[in-house]
Design a protein around this nucleic acid. Sequence first.
DNA 1: TATTAGCACTCAACGTTTAAGAGTGCTAAC
DNA 2: GTTAGCACTCTTAAACGTTGAGTGCTAATA
Lengths: 347, 347
Amino acid sequence: MQSLDDRKMKILQAIIRNYLETGEPVGSRTISKYTDLNLSSATIRNEMADLEELGYILQPHTSAGRIPSDKGYRLYVDRMMEEKEREVEELKELLLEKEDKMEHLLKQVAKVLAQNTNYATMISAPQTQRNKLKFIQLSRVDAHQILAVIVTEGNIIKNSILRVEEELDDETLLKLNILLNTHLNGLTISEINLGMITAMKMQAGIHSSIVGNVIDAVAESIKAEEDLEIYTSGTNNIFKYPELADNQKASELINMFEEKQLLNSLVEETLADESNTGIQVYIGDETPVQTMKDCSVVTATYELGEGMKGTIGIIGPKRMDYDKVVGTLKTLMHQLDDLYNKRERDP
Amino acid sequence: MQSLDDRKMKILQAIIRNYLETGEPVGSRTISKYTDLNLSSATIRNEMADLEELGYILQPHTSAGRIPSDKGYRLYVDRMMEEKEREVEELKELLLEKEDKMEHLLKQVAKVLAQNTNYATMISAPQTQRNKLKFIQLSRVDAHQILAVIVTEGNIIKNSILRVEEELDDETLLKLNILLNTHLNGLTISEINLGMITAMKMQAGIHSSIVGNVIDAVAESIKAEEDLEIYTSGTNNIFKYPELADNQKASELINMFEEKQLLNSLVEETLADESNTGIQVYIGDETPVQTMKDCSVVTATYELGEGMKGTIGIIGPKRMDYDKVVGTLKTLMHQLDDLYNKRERDP
DNA sequence: TATTAGCACTCAACGTTTAAGAGTGCTAAC
DNA sequence: GTTAGCACTCTTAAACGTTGAGTGCTAATA
C-alpha cells in the first residue's frame, strides 16, 4: 500500500480530528477553514473524493460529509503511535494514594482511567505464569476446623478451611506443616505428581486424609487464581456516544461488561501478542470480540515483575481520542512500574 | 383510608395485571373483555373515573387508557402479600451446585435470580454485626516478611503481609502468637483499647513494633469487612422495559449498579427495618434511593446464622411482576437457610 | 337505581408533504 | 493546479392531515 502524499494526509487527519470532536460527518467547507492549508472547499472536495476512492473515508449517504473508515483510523493511529510519546499527567498523585491491596488498586486504576478518558475501561488481575508455592501453614481454628493458608510466588494468599474428624494436637500439626512445606515448597502445580502425594500420605500415617485435603485446597487455590478476575469501570460512559447508545447495542455492551467472559478473550489476545510495544489498538471489526465491532479498543499490557502480567483495556466509540488514550495508557504503565519498584524497595 | 368495594378492587387488579403484561395504558374496553365481570365498557369507564379520583390509577393524557399509580401498586402489593405463600421452584437445584466460597455463592445467587426474573438484582455480603476475633496467626514467609492471618467469628479470613527489619526465630514467633491470641481472642474491635495495646507492647519487648503492626492489620481487616461488598447481575435487563431504557435513565441506573455506594443505602434501609416479614417492597418514590424513583424495588433480608445478615434486592420497572418476585425471593430465602444448615451439619 | 348504548370530543401516533440546509460532483474559468 | 459557481441529492425538521383508541356525558333501558 502506497503512502498518501502530505496534503492528503493532513486532510485526512483534519477529518478524523474533527469527527472525533463532533461525531458528525464533516464536510469540505469545514476542513477548508479548519486547516492551515488555505485551500478552498472545492479543492478539498477533490481530495476527499480521492481519499474516498482509496478507502480512507466514507460517505454515510450522498450529500453528507465524510467520516473516517476503519482503514482511515488505522492509518491515523499508526502514524500517531510513531510520533507521540506523551508527557506525564496528574494521574500520578491519584494513583499513589495509599492503596496496597491488589484488588483495590486495580479497581482504582479502572476508575481513574474511566474518569480521565470518558470511555469504559477494564483491567485484568495479573496472571502469574508459573505459580510456585512459597509457603503452606496449617493452624487449628477450633476442635474440628483447620485453617490452611497457602502463599504463592508474588505473595498471593489463599485460605481454606478444612473440617477434620479427629482432634489434632499441636505437635501433630507442626509435623504436618513441616511435611507439607518440605515436600511442596518451590513447586508449581504441574510439578506436584501423584507419586509425591502418595509418599506424603504414607508419611502422614493416620492423618493422610488431611494431606489429601490440603493438596486439594492447593490445587483449587491455584486454579481459582487462573479464572478471570477483571474489573471494569465507567461502563455508563458509552451513553455519551449516540452511535453506541441505542438500546440493542448498549444492552449487549453492558452485558459484556457484567459477564466479563468475553472480556477475557480480549485479555488473552492482548497477552498473546508479544511483538508489540505493549499497546495495541483494535478498530471496529479488528476486535477479537464481536460484541465490540462498533467500538474501538485500546489495550495495554502491564507487568509487575516476576512475570506477573495483566491487561488494561479502554473501550469506546470508533471516534475515540486515540491520541489521548494511548498517551494516558503509556503514562499509566510507567506509574505501575514505579509503584511496583517503590513497593519492593521501600515497604 | 377506606377500602375499595369488591368490584373496584377487581377492576383495579385487572388494570394492573394487564399493564404488567403489556406496558401500555389499558382502556375500558379491554377490561370489559378481560374480566369475568360481564360489564360493558361504559360501566367500567365510570368505575375507572372513580378509581382515578381516589388516586389508584392515572391517565397519561386525555383519551389514553389508565395506568396504575404508585398508590395503586401499593394496594395491589399489600393485598397480594397477605394472600400468597408461593410454592417451591426449580431454583433449588441450580443453587445447590457445588459452590462453597461465599463470593461465588453470592454472585451465583444474583445471577440465577436475574435470569429467573428478568430484572436487575443485587445481593450484599452478610455483615457480621459483632465481629469477634477468633484466631490470629503469624507465620514467617521469608526473612523479612511475616504473614498475619486473622480469623473472625463466622470464619471470615483476612491476610496481611508485614515487613520486619529484624529477623525472628521460630521461638519468638511462637511467643508472639501466644501473646496476641491470649489477649485478643474473643474481643470485638471496640473492645480493644489503648491500655491493652500498650500492655501487650510492653510484654513484646523489642518486638513491640510488630504487635503494633498486627493490631493495625486487625483494625484494617475488620474495617475493610465493613465496607460494602455488593454483587449485582442482570443490569442489562432494564433495557427490556422501554420506560427505563432511555439514555438518561439507563445511564444513571447502570452507573448506580457499577458504583454500588447508592445500593448500600438500600441495604442499610432494609436491614434497619425489623418490623417486617423479611420482604419489603418500595414502589417508585418510596425508594430510599432517588436514582430508582422510576423503578420498584423488592428487598429481602437473609440470615446465615450467627447474626450474619445480608440483603437481596430486585430492581425493575414499576410494572414489576410482584407476585412472582415475592414468591421467588421467599423460596430463595428458604434455600439459603437450608444451605447454611446443611453446611453446618455436613461438611 | 344501576347499567348500557351512543355520540361528540380529545389527543398521541403515524404518514405525508414541504422547506431548509448542508454537502457533493462537475464544469468552466482563472 | 486551484477555484467559483451551479445544479443536484439527501437528511432533517417542521407543518399538516388522518386515524384510532379512549374518554366523558347524556339519554334510554332493565
